[in-house]
């Protein structure tokens, strides 16, 4: 086994184990921490595949911003394992079985695809220079539209999240 394979297997086991921790943990805070570890493992995969820019963005945006937002919301609501609602065992079993069936169906559908080694000579396509050139030449319009999406999401989040004026008035 070479270095690449060892790193691949270590990161894969870490990602899958922590993903299982997300759905099995009773405490929501532990779920969030497991998900952050999963994102770090996926970032490690990006670095292995020579996509450095995406690895850094994944850490900054997902592990840094989005998961901190989740953590804030969970702490704001004071959720813990005691108040965690549970589904019935039958429904849980049905959920796991349907997920497993989906896994098997897609597995049989893709098991015959062309098997191509990932250890080809390194290409610089994942570097920020190439991605930036492509982004601002070919994808200028989607880039601008995504800025509008962000603005509308921000305004929407503020409007949804702020207190109802009538309720706030009634409290005073």
């Amino acid at each position: 086994m070479d270095f690449y394979s060892i790193l691949f297997w270590v990161l894969s086991v870490l990602a899958v184990g922590c993903a299982l921790g997300v759905i099995l943990s009773r405490n929501p805070v532990h779920s969030v921490l497991c998900l952050i570890l999963t994102f770090f493992a996926i970032s490690g995969h990006y670095i292995l595949m020579n996509a450095q820019f995406l690895a850094i963005v994944n850490i900054i945006v997902y592990a840094g911003a989005i998961m901190v937002l989740f953590l804030f919301v969970i702490m704001l609501m004071n959720l813990n394992a005691d108040v965690e609602p549970q589904k019935g065992h039958l429904i849980q079993l049905a959920g796991v079985v349907s997920g497993g069936i989906l896994f098997l169906v897609i597995l049989t559908a893709v098991k015959d695809v062309k098997n191509q080694s990932m250890e080809m000579p390194t290409t610089p396509i994942g570097l920020i220079e190439n991605l930036g050139k492509e982004l601002f030449h070919k994808y200028t319009l989607p880039f601008e539209i995504s800025s509008v999406l962000f603005l509308s999401a921000m305004i929407g989040a503020v409007i949804i999240g702020k207190k109802d004026p009538a309720a706030a008035h009634a409290e005073n």
Partner: peptide
């Protein structure tokens, strides 16, 4: 066994 695209597909 070298890592191939199928491994990433399964992961």
């Amino acid at each position: 066994m070298p890592v191939s695209s199928t491994h990433y597909l399964f992961l």
